[in-house]
Design a protein around this nucleic acid. Structure first.
Lengths: 113, 113
DNA sequence: CGCTTAGTAAAGCATATGCTTGACCATTCG
DNA sequence: CGAATGGTCAAGCATATGCTTTACTAAGCG
């Protein structure tokens, strides 16, 4: 394992898990309490909490505790950050690929600079 | 663990790893052979191969073997797919958040990076 | 107050993941 | 040919991950 310190890394790691993506999708509809959220998943509340702490660590969600109820909501900034990263990458790829043309099975002399 | 069958999942899983992202970045510059790629990483060639097979399984990269040399290159379609997924998600979030206004007694305008 | 509800802490466990080493095959080249 | 090069197969291993169970604390409510 290498870097892991890039700001984008925790976000990618957070959304790489299907359960966490499902939680995100649930939160897209509206903010919910922890137990309310947990009710929708076939696992213990603790497991849900652990996923939540990863999501919150990546700033994908935020949460606030009022009384004994912790309400969890999305943080759109995280997705915007992810989106710009993806877009930047894709742009870089495509720019390069455009220049190279058909690489495999092609003459390699157009791969300079 | 839940679903894991969504088409977006293998892509997200593939790019969640920092080593694999570094490989992607390397491939952004130009297609390379396996050993050439492995030369840039502080790990065995086999480890690099294993990462490559995950990337290829997610269709993030393609590879072709000519003679005894396997040349690896990016598949821009994967990133485009990822980008549309992210954009769709972000849009859903923001639409919802717009409608809800400030739920936790907070203004949702802190979205600068 | 005492009971229930919402959440948290901590430990344990099975599987997944990232990496290694060692053996092996296939192409190229002296 | 035989050696070197480029890649592949298969175990094995340590740590990470996703989840569980068993406490436990704190807030609300009769």
């Amino acid at each position: 394992m290498l870097d892991h310190s890039t700001p984008i890394d925790p976000i990618l790691h957070a959304i790489a898990d299907p359960t966490r993506r499902a939680m995100i999708e649930r939160l897209t509809k509206q903010p919910v309490s922890v137990s309310e959220l947990a009710g929708g998943f076939p696992m213990s509340l603790q497991a849900v909490m652990q996923h939540l702490s990863i999501l919150e660590g990546a700033a994908v969600v935020r949460s606030e505790k009022i009384g004994r109820v912790r309400t969890v909501s999305l943080n759109p900034a995280a997705l915007r950050q992810l989106e710009s990263w993806v877009t930047a990458q894709r742009t870089a790829w495509e720019r390069r690929l455009d220049r190279l043309g058909d690489i495999l099975g092609e003459t390699p002399e157009d791969a300079k600079e």
